Amino acid sequence: MLLAGALAMGSTMAAEAPPFRPLSYQDRLESRTLDSIELLVIHATELPDLDMAREYGERIHYPGSRTGNSGHFYIDREGRIEQWVALDRVAHHVAGQNANSIGVELVSLGRYPDWLDSRHQDWQEPVNEAQLRALIGLIDQLRTRLPNLNRIAGHDQLDRRRVPASDDPSIQVRRKLDPGPEFPWSRLIEATGLQPWNDGETAP
């Protein structure tokens, strides 16, 4: 089985591809070519488990297109990977960078359930070893299929917006802190060879 979207295009891969469980609206997502993909964005679900992440992923946020927000891949705490959106479809996972990127979601509590409460901004759960190994393996697979995939970023680097805190609108908090302050960026970059996002680059 090939990575879906790279996918029904031919040859086999050395490593077993993750199971593909397309979201109900996947076919309504915008199409793209694989050579347009050059950035991989790391997220955290900020939810208790994969089942709840799926529930959130299936929610329709855009009535016009009848689509919602999700990543392409999800990595559970034990390192199990699922693919929910084909690579040749544009997922809604990071404002302003969806068209050229892949979203990978790590199951993690993050700030759940008080995401925007100014009193609860501490990150509850770092990425674990099983998730990191699975992520490195996934990136290795993706690089064999995507000729222009060469950069990597965290969601927090691409979305720096601040919003009123849910407990006190006079306080501003970050919308996004994922994949978390203790994410092992140096280890991941060394293992994959991807170039880190330059914080001086333009992002929303």
Rank of each mutant, 00 (worst) to 15 (best):
G110W: 08
V85K: 00
L29S: 01
G71A: 09
P147H: 09
R54L: 15
G10M: 07
V173W: 11
L194M: 03
S24A: 15
E16N: 11
F20K: 00
L158N: 06
R143Q: 13
R66L: 15
W185S: 02
H72E: 15
I60D: 09
Q26I: 08
R162Y: 11
A8E: 15
I139Y: 09
A6V: 11
I37G: 05
P196D: 12
G103T: 04
H155P: 03
A44W: 10
E58T: 02
Q97A: 14
G79F: 03
G110Q: 00
E16P: 09
K176W: 12
F183D: 07
S36N: 10
Q141D: 03
S118I: 03
A134I: 00
D167N: 15
V163N: 00
S36M: 13
P113Q: 03
A95Q: 15
S170T: 05
E190F: 01
M9I: 06
N148R: 05
R21Q: 15
L7T: 08
L34M: 08
S170W: 12
S118T: 02
L188V: 05
R161I: 02
L146T: 00
L116P: 13
P179F: 14
V127Q: 04
T202D: 14
L40M: 04
Q26K: 03
S36I: 06
M13C: 09
G64M: 12
I136T: 10
D114I: 03
P126R: 04
E82G: 06
L149D: 11
G154M: 07
N198F: 08
W84K: 00
I102V: 07
R77K: 15
G193D: 12
D49G: 01
Y62C: 00
D49T: 00
P196N: 00
L3N: 01
P22T: 03
P19D: 13
H155W: 11
R143P: 05
V127L: 15
M9P: 13
I81E: 08
S118G: 08
V90E: 12
D114V: 07
N148M: 14
E16I: 09
M13L: 15
L87E: 04
E190W: 06
N100R: 13
R59G: 10
I171H: 01
L23T: 05
